[in-house]
């Protein structure tokens, strides 16, 4: 018997992101579609970053989860368009990120290329990323890249905690 797609979505919500295990792959917004094509379950996944090494692990975990639930014929499809955006991260998941020590993405602050960056440098206007530990807005950018390409490295000037900021893309 084929489980309905709603059930499959619920199962996929149990699959944690391999690098940020406090949120699931559905909360991250990378599962784009679940569909039965005859007797094959087709799951469409979009990568976060094109070189993200977690992508293959995520595919493996999806397959494992579905096999556990008794689905034998599985097809994983990669979809590039529309490209993944941090806007797709669910609001509850953003809170989970913060509790885990990662500052969640601040919508509308993605890199627009060099012009915006230059303006920020010239005007001294920096993106305010509150510290996920003490909540202070007094933090500084250490590097545009943190432990993974999707994060930047920050440090809190108030409590001195170094932390990751999930960049907007």
């Amino acid at each position: 018997m084929q489980p309905d797609t709603e059930t499959v979505w619920r199962w996929l919500a149990e699959v944690p992101d391999p690098e940020i295990p406090v949120i699931s792959i559905t909360e991250l917004g990378i599962v784009r579609d679940v569909d039965w094509q005859d007797d094959t379950l087709v799951v469409t996944v979009t990568p976060t970053y094109s070189g993200c090494p977690a992508t293959s692990v995520i595919n493996l975990e999806i397959e494992q989860k579905l096999r556990e639930k008794g689905v034998d014929k599985i097809e994983l499809k990669r979809q590039l368009s529309p490209p993944w955006s941090t806007d797709w991260i669910a609001d509850e998941a953003k809170e989970k990120l913060r509790a885990y020590g990662i500052a969640p993405p601040i919508e509308g602050t993605g890199a627009a290329g060099v012009v915006a960056g230059r303006v920020r440098r010239l005007t001294g206007e920096r993106l305010t990323v509150p510290c996920p530990r003490c909540g202070s807005p007094d933090t500084r950018l250490v590097s545009q890249y943190g432990s993974t390409p999707c994060k930047a490295a920050y440090q809190c000037n108030a409590c001195l905690e170094p932390f990751d900021y999930f960049k907007c893309i």
Binding site: P47, Y49, S50, L80, S81, P82, P83, G110, A111, A112, G113, V114, A116, G117, R118, R121, Q144, Y145, P149, K167, I169
Partner: peptide, 27 residues
């Protein structure tokens, strides 16, 4: 070719950060 456009859009989001970083460090 839509396949080219899709890859370019994806890669472009990443490259915006590359350029911001390299320009910042050159300065």
């Amino acid at each position: 070719d839509d396949r080219i456009g899709e890859i370019a859009l994806k890669a472009g989001k990443e490259v915006a950060y590359h350029l911001e970083r390299s320009a910042d460090l050159v300065i």
